[in-house]
């Protein structure tokens, strides 16, 4: 005798989404982790002031690449009718978005973690002390900017994909997302350098505002999705 369905919604699909993101987005994850490890090792071995200045700035740019596996799953599930099935079983568009967003952040953590582990490991192993400046750069910029950039990339990518239909000769959102994703980190970097040069405002203030701005954009888009995105936008356009 089959069990009668319990009157509760579908459970969290985060675990399986992360696994599928790793499988389907393995190229992005491998490239992201590879670049992260390579550059972290190079700058750690160079062991000059560049490790303290360039290493924390570089990681958020690379981390965006690693988080794209989540978008591969999103695009795939929309195209193959998986979302249609999941919506019928009670998942809202916001839950589908949140699921992919969290999966992207988990993937990004792998890239970021690998870079930090290798970079800091080599740096410490070669006899360098982990300075307060390096610690604050990682804690107040690298890590929050990495998560904010990946969240921004994934959310913009999902909204963009939901509102578009594949057309011959057009780039899919996922093809252009790396550019979209690294833009906030690069713009923040330029703004911070300008702040340092002009001494108009502290560079730390510029980076903090930039990170907060990204977080506001992400939550704003998610709020729009929850309120305004009709579920049919997540049905396969084919």
């Amino acid at each position: 005798m089959l069990q009668q369905a319990a009157e509760v919604g579908p459970p969290s699909l985060l675990g399986i989404s992360v696994r599928r993101s790793i499988t389907l987005g393995r190229v992005y994850l491998l490239v992201g982790a590879g670049l992260s490890i390579f550059y972290s090792a190079v700058f750690a071995l160079a062991a000059g002031p560049s490790f303290v200045t360039v290493f924390p700035v570089l990681l958020p740019v690379i981390a965006v690449m690693g988080g794209l596996g989540g978008m591969v799953v999103f695009t795939n599930d929309r195209l193959k009718g998986v979302f249609e099935y999941l919506i019928a079983y009670g998942l809202t568009p916001l839950r589908l978005f949140a699921n992919i967003l969290l999966a992207s952040l988990v993937l990004e953590s792998i890239v970021l973690g690998a870079g930090c582990l290798v970079g800091l490991g080599i740096y410490a192993a070669t006899g360098h002390a982990l300075s307060w400046a390096l610690g604050t750069a990682l804690g107040l910029y690298t890590i929050p900017m990495s998560y904010a950039s990946v969240a921004f990339t994934a959310t913009v990518g999902m909204v963009w994909t939901s509102l578009s239909s594949p057309r011959a000769g057009m780039n899919s959102p996922i093809g252009l997302l790396p550019i979209v994703g690294v833009t906030p980190a690069l713009v923040t970097l330029v703004a911070a350098l300008a702040a340092v040069a002009t001494r108009a405002v502290p560079a730390r203030l510029v980076t903090t505002v930039a990170i907060l701005l990204l977080v506001v954009v992400v939550f704003g888009l998610l709020r729009l999705v929850a309120r305004r995105l009709p579920p049919e936008r997540l049905l396969s356009p084919t």
């Binding site: 389907l24 998986v82 099935y85």
Partner: peptide, 17 residues
């Protein structure tokens, strides 16, 4: 929703599994 099953005309099978 818990009282119905829906099979769409698409397979709806997740890739990568």
């Amino acid at each position: 929703r818990d009282r119905l099953h829906y099979l769409s005309h698409m397979d709806g099978i997740p890739d990568g599994l």
